[in-house]
Each structure stands twice: as C-alpha cells, then as structure tokens.
Amino acid sequence: MTTPVTQVRNKLADIEIGRYLPLYNQLTEEQRYAYKLLLPGLVMMFIIHFIPIMWGALISVMGVDSAYTSNWYEAPFVWFENYQYVLDPRTVIGSRFWYSIRQTIIFAVGTLVLTYVLGLTAALVLNQRFKGRFAARTLLLLPWVAPAVVTLLVWRMMLQQQSGIINSILLSTGIINEPIYWLIGDNAIWSLILVHSWTQFPLVMIMLYAGLQSIPEQLYEAASIDGAGRWQRFRYITFPQLKPVSAVVILLMMLWTMINFTSAFVLLGSQPPQAGQVSILYIYEFAFSNFQFGRGAAMSVVLFAIAMTMAMLYYKYLFDEDFTEESR
C-alpha cells in the first residue's frame, strides 16, 4: 500500500517538465542531470540573494521611511526621486555619498594591490621546497582564519596614536619623530586598507598557490634548457599561467572589498572619520539610523551598479581576449 507521501513523490516524478520549460527538451540527459544537481543551490541563491536584491531595487523607487517600516508595500512610488536626492552633489547628502564612493574605490583598489602583492609573494615562497613549509602555510593562513572582530580590535589597539605599538615601534626606530594619527584624519583610509589587506591576503595566497601547483614542471624545465633565468621564468611562465586564477582573485577581491562592512565598522567605529567613510558604512548609517530605507536602497543600487560596471570593464578590457582565445 502506497503512503500519501509516496503518492506525492510519484506525482512529482510524473510531471512532464518539458511542457513548462521548452528548453528542457533540448537538453541532453547529462545536462538535465547537471541542472537537477544545481537546482537546490539555485533555489537557495534565489531565496537568499535574488529576492533581497530585487526587493532592494524595488524599494529604491519607493518612499519607504519610518512611516512605512512595517507596511512598506503601501509606500508611494517616488520613482527616481530617491536617486535624484542621493546623487545630487550640490546637497550635503549627495556630496557625502559621492565622497564615500570615491573612498570605496580607493579602499578597493588599495586592498587589491596590497593583497595581490602580498599573496603572490607568499604563494611563491610556499611553492618552494623547504623545511617547515607546512607550518609556514598554517601560520600565513592565521590572519584569515582568526575571528575578524578579534583581530580588527587588536589592530585598533595597535594603531592608537599614543598607546599603540605601531607608533611606539616607528618612534623608537627613528622612522617618525611624532606619533601619527592612524585612526582619525586622512590616514584612516590607509589604515583601513592595511588592516583589511592583512586579513584578506591569505585567501589570495592560497588561491594563487593552488594555481602555482597546477603549472606543469616541464615548462620550467624547457625554459631552463633554453637558458631562461629566474626572472624570465617568472615573467614568461609563472605570471601568464596564473592569469586565469588572478582574474578570478582580482575580481572577487575588488567586489568583496567594495561591499565589506566588518573591517571598516570594527576598525573605525559607527561614526568613522570622513576619510574612512566608505559607502557601505555610509549607507548603513544613513538608512538604519534615520529609517531612510528607500534612499538607502537607492544608494545600494548605485553602489551595486558601480561595482558591476567596474567588473564588466575589467573583464572586457583585460581578460576578454584571453578567454575568447582560450575558448576557440
């Protein structure tokens, strides 16, 4: 006797999916199997990512503020008024938002450069055979593995102007004559880049290290026979071979940094100095302290559009050709 559950299951199995999804009939059995495996992931992504993104885009054209917090669907459609408000550089809010975008780009590019240089250097070192390589790899991963809030708070203490160890070392070694303000004033953005890079470079390192491991040894042997030196081997074999991994790493680091909240919030506080006012902090503060959800969503959409545009340009002008060639 079949149970109700089995009946439901059998009914589901009998549904002719091709009737509802015409493209389904054009797929091979293997492709269908692949899509079935992808389905749970896609459903989760739809629920967790796409619905909030669409909701954010929707309320960015609605007047959702404190009066419509619980009944946002009743808020009036203001269309592009929110965008006009936050993008107008003549107003204080608009100029602050544009300034925060500028700081975000500095933050993203600075972090990208630093994490890539540090990550590549560390990966190249780890790729050598030496005693204690496993221990070194573990140690280098620590900044990424350790809880972010704890490490950021330690950095905050280290960067204090008078009691911080960074100034203390710089003063005692004679590099500086007066203690520097790292967390306030214009230096805040550089401190943020430094600290965030420190927490993120192990990820870059491990990805590049994986890329290095996949480069065939024969290429180096052939180059050595042709008389290539260490620098030439790096320039003509290692670096080009790492290009696909680097493309992914650079894209991910850029996007993740642009939307990173934790580092800026913990290191610089909820009211950061102007130089440390990156967009994500500004949007959070603006939207949640003031219940300006519609305008905050408009800012988020703008940030999203800028990040996506940068990613597209990056691919189009730097990597499109390589990937097109590869796929031929």
Partner: peptide
C-alpha cells in the same frame, strides 16, 4: 522629533571633523 537621528549623525560627524582638525593643527 522625527529626523533627529539624521541630524544627530550629521552633527556628530561635523563636530568630530572639527576636533580632528584641531588635534592635527589643520
């Protein structure tokens, strides 16, 4: 008053900017 959060946030930023400039001689 409604909107005080926004005013508080803005005023706090401004006061903080002034104090930072004061200690950095700017």
């Amino acid at each position: 008053v409604i909107g005080w959060g926004e005013i508080e946030s803005e005023l706090n930023s401004m006061v903080f900017e002034v104090l930072q400039s004061a200690v950095t001689d700017d």
